[in-house]
């Protein structure tokens, strides 16, 4: 199913869903980061340049609402897209556990990069960010992403 219209349909729908929930409905505190999930899924199927481009575009859209650190999301998501595409050379898996781990790790790295790129005076404290905030959101996003993909049936073949 990977690479099929259904898979890419999910990847295209997730960003819309992300902005609809976060911006449209205003449920920012309780909703997962589906934009990063979409990027991570798409990056596994795209070539490195295209994945970085996708990350750049997603990051720029996120930064459109950022007055604190414009560019931080763009930078973080470009790198995540790039690394996501390269991760095919490093990790291959066909289990649900792999998918969840990949999404969680990718989201955690994205938050870490955002934290690093943001100016020092607007950063959350390191311990809170790296050990509590980012891991919680990473697991939440990974579970939500995996659940969505399973529900839609867009993941029936091993992730490459």
């Amino acid at each position: 199913m990977k690479g099929s219209w259904r898979f890419w349909g999910v990847v295209a729908t997730l960003p819309i869903l992300h902005f609809f929930i976060h911006v449209g409905l205003g449920f920012s505190a309780w909703s997962p980061d589906l934009l990063t999930v979409a990027l991570l899924l798409g990056a596994r199927e795209l070539r490195m340049g295209a994945a970085a481009g996708l990350g750049f575009f997603f990051g720029l859209m996120e930064d459109a609402f950022s007055v604190l650190a414009f560019g931080a999301n763009t930078m973080a998501m470009t790198i995540v897209g790039l690394v996501g595409a390269r991760s095919r050379d490093l990790f291959m898996g066909d289990s649900l556990l792999f998918l969840i781990s990949y999404l969680a790790l990718g989201k955690w790295v994205r938050d870490l990069l955002h934290w690093l790129v943001s100016a020092q005076d607007i950063r959350a404290p390191a311990l809170e960010m790296l050990l509590f905030d980012a891991p919680t959101q990473a697991i939440y996003a990974a579970l939500a992403g995996a659940l969505l993909i399973l529900l839609v049936g867009a993941w029936r073949e091993p992730i490459r």
């Binding site: 070539r47 490195m48 340049g49 295209a50 994945a51 970085a52 481009g53 990350g55 750049f56 990051g59 720029l60 930064d63 414009f70 560019g71 931080a72 763009t74 930078m75 470009t78 790198i79 790039l82 790129v117």
Partner: peptide, 22 residues
């Protein structure tokens, strides 16, 4: 093709870094 992808990736990375300092 691989080299082209690397160049493209670097281009996007530079663009992303530029947005920080605009």
């Amino acid at each position: 093709a691989g080299r082209r992808q690397i160049v493209l990736s670097l281009l996007f990375l530079i663009l992303a870094a530029t947005t920080l300092y605009l």
